[in-house]
């Protein structure tokens, strides 16, 4: 039997919008993944520490407050400095297109905007987590 994919779902920064992340977390769990959700108001340091401690394969970051260009890169840097860059980093939220391109260059693997079906997210994670 394949090992279950472990994914950390996290809310970096002060944003309180958690409808999207909770729906996605549940869909991933229903799809057979082991999902850890951090809850609101997490610093990049807390998120990276949780990802390493929980030994996850991937993470899903949700930001709707506009702070993504400060917080996503910080998380990517912290993963690198902790030798954990093999963790697949994905995200979602209210993120303009040009920022998505920037974030991808920095190492965010995919950004899922409003209206993305959960099935598309599940498929992406399953295909892109390194086994």
């Amino acid at each position: 039997m394949d090992k279950k994919i472990r994914i950390l779902m996290a809310k970096p920064g002060l944003d309180g919008h958690d409808r999207g992340i909770k729906v996605v977390a549940r869909a991933l769990r229903d799809a057979g993944m082991e999902v850890v959700y951090t809850g609101l108001h997490q610093t990049p340091e807390q998120i990276v520490e949780a990802a390493i401690q929980e030994d996850v394969d991937a993470m899903g970051l949700s930001i709707l407050s506009g702070a993504h260009m400060a917080l996503f890169p910080k998380i990517i840097d912290l993963l690198k400095s902790n030798n954990a860059e093999d963790i697949l980093v994905t995200g979602g939220g209210i993120i303009p297109k040009e920022d998505i391109e920037e974030l991808k260059k920095m190492g965010v693997s995919a950004i899922f905007g409003p209206g993305t079906p959960t099935t598309e997210i599940i498929k992406y994670i399953e295909e892109n987590v390194k086994n």
Partner: peptide, 18 residues
């Protein structure tokens, strides 16, 4: 903005990017 709502001044580390 969120720092104002959460009781942090703009120079607090929790205010990063917000």
């Amino acid at each position: 903005d969120l720092p104002t709502q959460m009781g942090y001044d703009s120079d607090h580390q929790m205010a990063l990017g917000e």
